[in-house]
Each structure stands twice: as structure tokens, then as C-alpha cells.
């Protein structure tokens, strides 16, 4: 979705320079919440203040809201149909593969610091075997990061 955002904001509407866009993106990725929502808020705020940010967040959220609601209202009932069932039997492993692939991609960058890999394995074991809540893991990792800073070569360090 991000290439689409970049094309619209920079190339078509000329609302922002590339550098400002990257600064906003770094900030949007650092904050919690859907990145695309954070990006909309930042872009809208930069152009027209609070009103701008509310308009752009509504603009981003509305299409998916309507599309998903349409699917929920009209198509979900056909989920038990045997053709759909068979298709989903193949779609589910494909979705699993997509998620595992994301781990490889993120890991390549983050695991350059061996401590990150160690923490990752510790956290994942805690989540799977001890059934720790994801929020606990997030809070613990933030505290560990303050006490024992990691050297992740993140995008953030390139921005002022």
C-alpha cells in the first residue's frame, strides 16, 4: 500500500517533498497503530492541521470499512459452500507462507545484532509455551531496550 501512498502524495498531488515523506513514514512506523492511518494523520495535519488530519483518516478508513462490511453482509454466508471451502484450504497455507516470509525479511535486518535474535527466541518461546500476552512482551522489550540498547540499523537513525 505504501508505494500507492507515495505516488499519490508526492508524484500526483505534490503535497510533500520526498524527504518530508520519508520523515513522516519513519515517525508513522515508530508509533503504534496501523502505519497507513498514522501516515494519513501526519499528511493531513501537515497540510491543513487537525481538520486535514481528520479528513484524511476518514478517507483512508472508509473504503476498507465499506468493502469489508459488504463482504461480511453478502459473501461470508457462502463460506461453507464446498468450492469456497476447498479454495480456503489452499489459501490458508499461502497466508502462513506470507507471514513466515515477512519474518525472514525483517529478521535479515534486525538480527544483525545477535542479542536481537536471542531476545526474539526468548519472546517467541514465552508467547507460545508460557502463553504470555503480546502486550507483556511489548512492554518487557521496551524496558530491555532502554536498559540494554540494541544496535538495529533502523531507518529512524537517518532522519534528523
Amino acid at each position: 500500500m505504501l508505494p500507492l501512498v507515495k505516488r499519490e502524495i508526492i508524484d500526483k498531488k505534490h503535497w510533500m517533498e520526498n524527504g518530508d515523506f520519508l520523515d513522516n513514514l519513519a515517525l508513522a512506523q515508530s508509533l503504534p497503530g496501523p502505519v497507513i492511518i498514522n501516515m494519513s494523520l501526519l499528511t493531513g495535519y501537515r497540510l491543513r492541521g487537525i481538520k486535514g488530519s481528520i479528513s484524511s483518516v476518514l478517507g483512508t478508513a472508509m473504503p476498507s470499512f465499506v468493502i469489508i462490511l459488504t463482504i461480511a453482509l453478502f459473501f461470508w454466508q457462502y463460506r461453507d459452500y464446498y468450492l469456497i471451502q476447498a479454495a480456503f484450504m489452499g489459501i490458508r497455507p499461502a497466508v502462513t507462507a506470507l507471514i513466515i516470509y515477512t519474518i525472514f525479511q525483517l529478521g535479515k535486518r534486525v538480527f544483525e545484532d545477535y542479542r536481537s535474535l536471542l531476545l526474539f527466541m526468548l519472546f517467541l518461546s514465552g508467547l507460545i509455551f508460557v502463553n504470555l500476552h503480546p502486550i507483556t512482551i511489548i512492554v518487557v522489550s521496551a524496558i530491555v531496550g532502554i536498559l540494554w540498547p540494541l544496535n538495529n540499523n533502523s531507518k529512524k537513525e537517518q532522519t534528523p
Binding site: L124, I137, I138, I143, G145, K156
Partner: peptide, 11 residues
């Protein structure tokens, strides 16, 4: 925020 990275991948 840097410390959260390994946790994010664990999630």
C-alpha cells in the same frame, strides 16, 4: 523503540 523490534518479530 529499537528494543521493540525483536518483540515485533516474535509477535
Amino acid at each position: 523503540l529499537n528494543g521493540i523490534h525483536p518483540a515485533v518479530i516474535a509477535l
